[in-house]
């Protein structure tokens, strides 16, 4: 249940950037290679912000598919499963191009 601590981290960062202004939407970008369950994240977010100035702020997740590039044949592909193997040559020397993102991208603040 690390979604709870993830949400605490998000709330801390958001509060600092919002500096007391009301927050409507928190945009986060999370790669598929992160083992984060979106529904659990949403639930934990509602728990963490309840009775705080962030209550009612919506957490909106931009999900980033995992993409790899094969070091041997140069092929790039988007992964359906977290299997780090080239779909072209079956090589395992692959680098991860996307899918490990884990950041808060922006906030939408209500103008006071």
């Amino acid at each position: 249940m690390h979604e709870l601590s993830i949400c605490r981290s998000i709330a801390g960062i958001v509060s600092r950037h919002a500096a007391g202004r009301p927050v409507r939407v928190v945009h986060v970008r999370i790669g598929h290679l992160r083992q984060v369950v979106p529904d659990t994240l949403a639930y934990c977010w509602s728990l963490v912000v309840e009775d705080t100035p962030l209550a009612g702020a919506e957490l909106r997740v931009e999900s980033v598919p995992a993409r790899i590039r094969c070091e041997d044949c140069g092929r790039t592909e988007t992964l359906e499963a977290p299997v780090l193997r080239c779909g072209g040559c079956d090589g395992t020397r692959v680098s991860i191009l996307a899918g490990e993102e884990f950041l808060i991208t922006s906030l939408e603040l209500a103008e006071a």
Partner: peptide, 27 residues
């Protein structure tokens, strides 16, 4: 409040009276 979703219907209310603040901070 606290809803998750890539698409949540009409929220045209955000179009106005909203300030967007870039954060780009690792969680």
């Amino acid at each position: 409040g606290g809803r998750f979703g890539d698409v949540i219907g009409d929220h045209s209310g955000y179009e106005t009276g909203t300030e967007r603040v870039t954060v780009l901070e690792r969680i």
